[in-house]
Amino acid sequence: MNFWEKLEKLDRRIIYIIITLAVVLPFFFRMGLPIKISPETKAIYDYIQNLSPTDVVFISGDYDPQVDAELTPMFEAIVRHCFERNVKIVVSNVYNPQGVGLVEPRLKKLAQEYKKVYGVDYVFLGWKYGYSLLIMGMGRDFKGTWQTDYYNTSLEDLPLTSKINNYNDIALVISLTGSGAYVAWIYYAYVQFKAKIAAGITAVMAADSYPYLQAGQLIGLLGGLRGAAEYEQLIHHPSLGSAGMEAQSWSHIAIILFIILGNLGYFMSRKKK
């Protein structure tokens, strides 16, 4: 067995250890690299920045625990921004019941941090059955479709939601998702009701969403942990997203080296044959 063959047969556990080190070590040895802000992220930031305290942003946490690591930093950054700007938020989980358990505690925590009043500054709707029916129903009759919030209070009784009738009263819908839920928001909320849609999506989906962005169906896009990190930079509150970016850097380098080494081995051993 020559060198290249040995390299090809490398035990996978060695690879696992290398990638673990590439992720963990950067937390201890920081380079402090700056993060450039992409226009997709800036578009959402600018939009929220220009909202007034009477405007409402509707955030739908359409994700489950599997992609929690990518989307919760986005959720927290956007909520922070809205709270800081005094923009009102209504949070729900239209497409994913699992999202309730991820979004609710974080929202409560942030609301306490910013001293926001439930029902006045923010409302949590939770999940209800309906998916696309719910999205369409909201365009006709917001309160009638949801009836109650997560804590079973009638939406009529909450000062914030009592004023929301349909998408005209919502300045922006943000769908945070690890699936195609944001496309459903485009089809059922943007197409028929002209609701403004922004998406925070996992990196897996990000490359596929550019046609919607270019067509103006999305006003902006947060792509994966990078998007979250950019948003955190914009609101000057580095948190989970930014912390991960250096680990992300080195692990990417590791993966690229793996691909190069792997291919070298492949070509070398093929040449021999």
């Binding site: 690299l33 700056p34 450039k36 990196a203 990078r226 970016m245 850097s249 990417h252 993966i255 690229i256």
Partner: peptide, 11 residues
């Protein structure tokens, strides 16, 4: 894309 999406790419 991998290098462009992480800060070290610019470095």
């Amino acid at each position: 894309v991998m290098l462009g999406r992480v800060p070290i790419g610019d470095y």
